[in-house]
Amino acid sequence: MRAPITAKGAQRLRDELDNLKSVKRPEIIQAIAEARSHGDLKENAEYHAARELQGFIEGRIKQLEGELSHAEVIDVTRLNAGTRVVFGATVTLADVDSDEEKRYQIVGDLEADIKLGLIAISSPVARALIGKNEGDTVAIAAPAGSREYEIVSVEYVG
C-alpha cells in the first residue's frame, strides 16, 4: 500500500531533498576536501566529523527518495467530503469541558509535525476523528485520561 501524503507535504519533502542534494552535499564534499588537506587523517577530528555528517546527509537523501517514490500524493483541495473527516481534513476541535479550541490537519505519517498542527493519520487523535462529522462529539484517549471534543469545523484547504 502506498503511504498517503498531501501535496503540500510532498513539496516540503522535495524541497528538503533538493536542499540536501544541491547545497548540503556540495558543502560537505568541500569540508572533507579541506580537512584532508590538513594532513594525517587518523587524528583529524574535522575530517571524521565531516565524514559522519556526510553519512547522515546521504542516508537522509536515500530515505526521502524512497518515501517520495512510494507515496501517494493527494490534493486535499479536490476532496469533496463535505463535513465528514477524511485524510487531509483540517479539523477544529473544542474541548467539551474547557471550550479550548485546537486545530489539526490530518496528514500522512511522513509529514506529521505536531508543532505545525499536522497530525499523522495513524495517530490516536486522527483515528478517533476519521469518519466523524462536523458537530459530532468524540472521545480521545490522552495521557491524562479520555477527553471529549466537539468537532467545530471540517475544512479541506491546500
Rank of each mutant, 00 (worst) to 15 (best):
N80L: 05
R36W: 05
I114G: 05
D75N: 07
G117F: 09
F87D: 12
L53Q: 15
D99P: 06
L93A: 08
R60N: 04
D40H: 06
E58H: 02
I151D: 07
A81H: 05
Y47K: 08
I28K: 03
R78T: 15
R2L: 10
L116Y: 03
I121P: 06
E16K: 06
L129V: 04
L110D: 11
A120E: 06
G131F: 02
D113N: 12
A71K: 03
R78E: 15
S22M: 10
V107C: 14
A81D: 12
I5S: 07
T90I: 15
D95Y: 01
T83V: 11
V76W: 00
D109H: 06
L20E: 05
G82Q: 08
T90Q: 15
S98M: 13
A45S: 11
R60D: 03
F56C: 07
F87M: 11
V154A: 01
D109W: 03
E100T: 15
A89Y: 00
V23E: 12
E148M: 11
E43Q: 11
S37P: 04
G145I: 09
D99E: 14
A89D: 02
T83S: 12
G135E: 02
I130V: 07
I140K: 11
A94W: 02
R25C: 02
E43P: 03
Q11W: 00
Y149E: 07
A71H: 02
V86E: 10
Y149H: 05
G55C: 04
Y104P: 07
T137H: 10
K42I: 08
Q30Y: 05
S98H: 13
E16L: 08
S123T: 01
K102T: 12
E27M: 11
R60Y: 01
L17V: 05
V86N: 03
I106Y: 02
G158L: 10
E100D: 14
S146M: 14
Q63K: 12
V138S: 05
Q105S: 08
G39H: 07
L64V: 08
E46M: 09
D113K: 03
R51Y: 08
L93V: 06
I151W: 01
A45V: 13
D109P: 04
E34G: 13
H48V: 12
R103P: 04
P26C: 09
S22T: 14
K115C: 06
G131T: 08
D113V: 00
S123W: 02
A71D: 04
T90E: 15
T6H: 00
K115H: 11
V154T: 02
E72H: 09
F56T: 14
I74F: 00
S98Y: 14
A10L: 01
D97E: 15
D15V: 07
D109G: 04
V96S: 09
E43I: 09
R127P: 07
G39C: 04
G9F: 00
S153K: 09
G158N: 13
G158S: 12
R60W: 00
Q30S: 13
L79Y: 00
G9S: 01
G117I: 08
D136I: 05
G55R: 06
I29C: 10
G59T: 06
K62Y: 08
S122E: 11
L64M: 10
G135S: 07
K132F: 01
A139E: 15
R36C: 09
I29P: 04
E16V: 05
R2H: 10
E34P: 09
A49N: 14
D97L: 13
